[in-house]
């Protein structure tokens, strides 16, 4: 298990906190809490040695979606595709037009 932290500049504030996903095989859970000016990401992952892949995936995601919030990711071996889907789900359900907290 490895804990990684990252910070990215973010201009778009999240409207509300949201929780998606499960710490199950090939999946992860995301807890998003609104914050100011920065996207702070803490990743706890069951798979060691993928620091660079995480940085690349997250950099690309927050370049396109500069959502200002704290993101806590508890990962159980999700692929980059699943990580991006869960992050997108989190920011969608945490936006002002989004669904309710913990929709999935």
């Amino acid at each position: 298990m490895q804990t990684l932290t990252y910070e990215f500049p973010a201009s778009r504030p999240a409207a509300r906190r949201t929780h998606v996903g499960v710490v199950g095989s090939g999946d992860l859970e995301v807890l998003m809490t609104p914050a100011d000016g920065t996207a702070r990401v803490r990743v706890r992952t069951s798979v060691d040695g993928f620091d660079t892949v995480w940085r690349t995936v997250l950099e690309r995601f927050f370049a396109r979606n500069p959502v200002a919030a704290d993101f806590e990711l508890n990962d159980f071996g999700a692929t980059p595709g699943v990580v991006v889907l869960r992050l997108r789900q989190a920011i969608e359900s945490g936006s002002s037009q989004g669904g309710t907290e913990g929709a999935a």
Binding site: V23, E29, T45, F76
Partner: peptide, 10 residues
């Protein structure tokens, strides 16, 4: 869990 290297769930 974390001290045993297992990722916890919130």
């Amino acid at each position: 869990l974390e001290p045993q290297g297992v990722v916890p769930q919130s």
